[in-house]
């Protein structure tokens, strides 16, 4: 199978001594031998201390409702991941502009839309996926009293 352009080329299951060596020889290539060791090392790295308090604060910000067991596991996992991504500190990025948008020159400025109305969703379609609705509106549980504008939270 898989011959190309006249010259038969064993590729699959062919016992090759060292394809890299062979490749170099054939095409005058210099292919890398063994690359950096970071791939294997990365997983076994250390951990950054993330306090339980921080984990809980973040969980509140993200409205994830973690239970204590989950929070504990999250503490460990976040610590390991943060240790890994902390690798970025090795790099000097002084004076480097961030790339918030990769498009760059492909899109020199934000495109703008003419102020022309488009048909909205039908009322049925707007509410079709709603977990709860009433009188054409989405129904949500009461906001906690302190947050309600007219609530007696001030007293």
């Amino acid at each position: 199978m898989r011959s190309a352009q006249g010259e038969p080329r064993p590729l699959l299951g062919h016992p090759v001594a060292d394809p890299l060596v062979r490749a170099r020889k054939r095409a005058g290539l210099r292919l890398p031998g063994s690359g950096p060791a970071w791939y294997n090392v990365a997983g076994g790295g250390g951990s950054v201390a993330v306090s339980r308090e921080t984990v809980e604060h973040i969980a509140v910000l993200a409205r994830l409702g973690l239970d204590p067991a989950e929070a504990g596991e999250m503490e460990r996992q976040l610590g390991a991941i943060l240790a890994y991504v902390g690798k970025l500190r090795e790099l000097d990025t002084e004076g480097v502009e961030p790339t918030f948008h990769v498009l760059g020159r492909l899109l020199p400025s934000l495109p703008l839309r003419p102020d022309e109305p488009l048909p909205p969703l039908s009322p049925g379609a707007a509410l079709a996926n709603a977990p709860a609705s009433e009188r054409g509106c989405f129904l949500v549980p009461p906001v906690i009293p302190e947050e309600a504008e007219k609530g007696g939270g001030g007293g």
């Binding site: 394809p19 490749a23 690359g35 950096p36 060791a37 791939y39 294997n40």
Partner: peptide, 24 residues
Amino acid sequence: EYWLEGLEEGVRRKVAEAIEVLAS
């Protein structure tokens, strides 16, 4: 840099062969 130490040997071999094909 893409020829990681942890690269599976079979992957290394097949991709090297592929590059050889491209050269050819």
